[in-house]
Design a protein around this nucleic acid. Structure first.
Length: 646
RNA sequence: GCCGAAGUAGCUCAGCUGGUAGAGCAGCUGAUUUGUAAUCAGCUGGUCGGGGGUUCGAGUCCCUUCUUCGGCUCCA
C-alpha cells in the first residue's frame, strides 16, 4: 500500500500502481469523468499512469491551467491523427498547447491546406474523438525512434529526436496515430467534446525564417460544448470592439495608401480625444516636477552613432535624408532619448539639480516590417508620452514610486481596474551581456522591486528579460473582456549616460554619471488609444469622449431653443452639438445611439417652456426631464468623479 | 520581409461556369414639422486597388505591383 496526499491535506492509502484516474473514481464518478491529467510530486503526468510510491497528488481538471494544456495538447494529437488520415504521407513538426487552444505545424508535401479544408478536418477529428481511443504511452530507445521516423520519412521529427538526449524516448499512440511526445495526455479522445479549427497560417520550422515554412493549423477544444459557444461569443465581442472597426465608425482616425502604410492620421474627433489625454498627462506631469521640451523630428546621423542605435538599427531604419549640397545624413528620429541627452548636456549639472525630468510628446518613426503593421497598435509613426529622468543612483527608487503613482492615477481615470507589473531583471547566469556596474544593477533592481512592493503592485519577476542597458518595469492591463495588453513602461538605462558622457557634480566635488530612466505611462498615444477603444468598446469615459451630449430638437421650431441650450452647456464646458437635420426624433436618437454619444437631450415644446431638457443616456434610455442647470451640474459631477477616481 | 486569404459606390455587401456593374445605408432635392433606435418619394454617385496580358469581349482567367486581413519572424 502507498500513501497518497491530496491537496486538502488528507492522506489515503491505495494499492501500489494505482492511477490518478482510479483515485478520482474512488472520490466520485463525476470527478473521474473530468480528470485530464495529474500533478504527482510536482510533475504533471497522465492520469492513467501508475503511481508506485507515496506521493502528493493533485488531480487536474479543466479548471487548472495544466489540465487545459493537457486537453489541448491531446487535441493537437487528434488533429494530427485526422490530418494523417486525410492527407497520407503528411509530415509533422510540433503541436503544442498555447494560451487559447493549440496548433500543429505540418508539411503537407506538395498539397496545400487552406481554411476551406478546415471543416472536413474538423469533422474527421469529431469522428475520431467519438471513438474514445485511449492515449497509450510507449517507451522506445532513441535509435528505434529514429528508425521509426526515418521509415515514415518525417525529417522534422528526426531533427527533434537528434536534439534529445540519448536514452528512452516516449511516444503516445491514439487510434492509428503515433507521435513522439513527452506527454502527458488525457485518458482518451472522448474527453474532447467540442472542437473548432480556427485558421491556418504559415510558420517557420523552429521559428527561424531561414527554415522551411510549414502550415500551421490553429484550433481549440473544450470538454463541454457550451464552453466552445462561450468562447466563440467572446471572439465575436472582441471583433465588435476592434479599434480598427470602431476607429472608422466613430471617425477617430484613418489610414491612406497615398500617405503610406502604418502612418495613421487623426480625424477631428480622434484628435480631440487624444489631446484631452495629452493635456491630462501634461497637467499631472507638471504637478510632479516634469518640464516639457520639444525636439526636432530628424537628427544628424552622428547622434545615433553616439547613442549606438545607428550600429544596431541603421540598416533597418527608414533610409537617411541627405542634404543636397553637403551630403550629410539625417535620420527620422526613432526615439527621443538621444535628443534629451543632448539637452541634459546643454549645461553642467549639480547633484542638487537632480532629478531632472524632461518630458516630450515626441513623435517617432520606425521602419516596422510591413507584415507587422496592425491598426494603431503597430505603426510606423507614433507619439510617445515620453520622459527621461536623469537622477542619482540613490534616487531611482523614489522616481519609480512617483512614476508608478502617475500610472495608477491614469489607469483609474480610464477605468482600467485590473493591472499588474512585469519586472524584468538581468539573467544572473550571464551578467557579462549587460552594460553597467554590478553595484548599480543590484541597486536599481532592488529599488524597482521595493517600489513595486511599497505600492502593493502585483508583480511578476522575469529573470533575463531586462534590456542590455538596464532593468525595467512594464505595466500590463486586463481589459473589459479579459485580454491582457502591455502599456506603460519604466526602464533604467546605464548605457546612454555612458555613451553621451553625461555628468553631474557631486557633493564630493567629483564628477558622477547620472542614471537615466525612460518612462512612458501610456506607452504611445496610438497604442494606448487603441487599447482604450477596445476596453470601453468605443464608449469612452465622459471626461474624454469627443462629444458629451447631442441636442435633438423635435422639430425645426425648436432649433432656436436648441441653440440656447448649446450656449448654456458651453458655459459649463460641456462638449455638445445640435442635430438640426430635418428628421424625426426617433431617427436622431438612433443615430446618436450608434455614434455612442453619452447624452441625448431631446428638446421640444415642454422643454422650451420650462428651460429644461429631456435626457436620454446612451445604452440606458430615457432618464426623464430635468432643468438644464441640473443636467449640466450632473455632467460636471460625473466628469469630476472620473478624473479624480481615487 | 515570409506563408495564406482578400480588395466592387463614402460605409456594409451582392454579382453562377468571361457577355462592358447592383442593393441597403450615407449624400443631394422635394414633400413632411415630427416626442425616445430608421417618414416618404426622386436623384447623384463606381476607369470593379494600380499596371500589363489572354480573349471578339475581363469585376470574373493569367502575370505583376500596392494595400488590408490571419499568422510567422521582428519590435530601440
Amino acid at each position: 500500500m502507498i500513501k497518497i496526499t491530496l491537496p486538502d491535506g488528507s492522506v489515503r492509502e491505495f494499492e501500489q500502481g494505482i492511477t490518478a484516474l482510479d483515485i478520482a473514481k474512488s472520490i466520485s464518478e463525476g470527478l473521474a469523468r473530468n480528470v485530464l491529467s495529474a500533478e504527482v510530486n510536482g510533475e504533471v503526468i497522465d492520469a492513467t499512469r501508475s503511481i508506485n510510491s507515496d506521493a502528493t497528488v493533485k488531480l487536474l481538471t479543466w479548471s487548472d491551467s495544466e489540465g487545459k494544456k493537457t486537453l489541448w495538447h491531446s487535441s493537437a494529437h487528434l488533429l494530427a491523427e485526422a490530418l494523417e488520415a486525410l492527407y497520407p504521407g503528411i509530415k509533422f513538426g510540433i503541436g503544442p498547447p498555447i494560451e487559447n487552444g493549440f496548433y500543429y505545424d505540418v508539411d503537407p508535401g506538395g498539397r496545400s491546406i487552406s481554411s476551406e479544408d478546415l471543416p472536413a478536418i474538423e469533422a474527421k477529428m469529431k469522428e475520431l474523438a467519438k471513438q474514445k481511443n485511449p492515449y497509450l504511452r510507449k517507451e522506445m530507445a532513441k535509435a528505434d525512434a529514429i528508425a521509426y521516423f526515418t521509415d515514415k520519412n518525417d525529417e522534422y521529427k528526426i531533427e527533434l529526436l537528434n536534439d534529445l538526449e540519448d536514452g528512452t524516448i516516449t511516444f503516445y499512440q491514439q487510434g492509428d496515430f503515433v507521435d513522439l511526445c513527452r506527454g502527458p495526455h488525457i485518458p482518451d479522445t472522448g474527453f474532447i467534446k467540442a472542437i473548432k479549427l480556427m485558421n491556418v497560417a504559415g510558420a517557420y520550422w523552429r521559428g527561424d525564417e531561414k527554415n522551411k515554412q510549414l502550415t500551421r493549423i490553429y484550433g481549440i477544444t473544450f470538454p463541454k460544448s457550451s464552453e466552445l459557444t462561450e468562447y466563440l461569443e467572446l471572439l465575436e465581442e472582441a471583433k465588435k470592439r476592434d479599434h480598427r472597426k470602431l476607429g472608422k465608425e466613430l471617425e477617430l482616425f484613418m489610414f491612406s495608401e497615398k500617405v503610406g502604410q502604418g502612418l495613421p492620421m487623426w480625424l477631428p474627433k480622434g484628435t480631440a480625444l487624444r489631446e484631452r489625454l495629452t493635456d491630462y498627462l501634461k497637467k499631472a506631469q507638471a504637478a510632479t516636477g516634469y518640464v516639457q521640451v520639444i525636439t526636432p523630428h530628424i537628427a544628424h546621423k552622428d547622434l545615433y552613432v553616439t547613442s549606438g542605435h545607428y550600429d544596431k538599427y541603421g540598416a533597418d531604419s527608414f533610409q537617411p535624408i541627405r542634404t543636397p549640397n553637403e551630403g550629410e545624413e539625417f535620420f527620422l528620429k526613432p526615439m527621443n532619448c538621444p535628443h534629451h541627452c543632448e539637452i541634459y548636456k546643454n549645461k553642467p549639472h549639480s547633484y542638487k539639480d537632480l532629478p531632472i525630468r524632461l518630458a516630450e510628446f515626441g513623435t517617432v518613426y520606425r521602419y516596422e516590417q510591413s507584415g507587422e503593421l496592425h491598426g494603431l497598435t503597430r505603426v510606423r509613426g507614433f507619439t510617445q508620452d515620453d520622459a527621461h529622468i536623469f537622477c542619482r543612483p540613490d534616487q531611482v527608487k523614489d522616481e519609480f514610486l512617483k512614476v508608478i503613482d502617475l500610472v495608477f492615477m491614469i489607469f483609474k481615470a480610464l477605468d482600467f481596474k485590473d493591472f499588474t507589473a512585469q519586472i524584468s531583471l538581468r539573467d544572473p547566469e550571464n551578467k557579462a551581456k549587460y552594460i553597467g556596474s554590478d553595484e548599480n544593477w543590484e541597486k536599481a533592481e532592488s529599488a524597482i522591486i521595493e517600489a513595486a512592493q511599497e505600492r502593493n503592485l502585483s508583480t511578476v519577476i522575469e529573470l533575463g528579460e531586462a534590456a542590455f542597458y538596464g532593468p525595467k518595469l512594464d505595466f500590463m492591463v486586463k481589459d473589459a473582456i479579459g485580454r491582457r495588453w502591455q502599456l506603460g513602461t519604466i526602464q533604467v538605462d546605464y548605457n546612454l549616460p555612458e555613451r553621451f558622457q553625461l555628468e553631474y557634480m557631486g557633493a564630493d566635488n567629483q564628477k558622477h554619471r547620472p542614471v537615466m530612466i525612460h518612462r512612458a505611462p501610456f506607452g504611445s498615444m496610438e497604442r494606448f488609444v487603441a487599447v482604450l477603444i477596445e476596453h470601453c468598446a468605443g464608449n469612452f469615459p465622459l471626461w474624454l469622449t469627443p462629444e458629451q451630449a447631442v441636442i435633438l430638437p423635435i422639430s425645426e421650431k425648436y432649433n432656436d431653443y436648441a441653440k440656447k441650450v448649446l450656449e448654456v452647456l458651453k458655459n459649463y464646458d460641456i462638449r455638445a452639438a445640435i442635430d438640426d437635420r430635418d428628421e424625426r426624433a426617433g431617427k436622431k436618437i438612433r443615430d446618436a445611439e450608434i455614434s455612442k454619444t453619452p447624452y441625448m437631450l431631446i428638446v421640444g415644446e415642454k422643454e422650451e417652456q420650462s428651460d429644461s431638457v429631456s435626457v436620454r443616456k446612451h445604452g440606458e434610455g430615457d432618464l426623464g426631464e430635468m432643468t438644464l442647470e441640473l443636467f449640466a451640474k450632473q455632467v460636471q459631477n460625473e466628469v469630476d468623479a472620473q478624473i479624480n477616481a481615487n
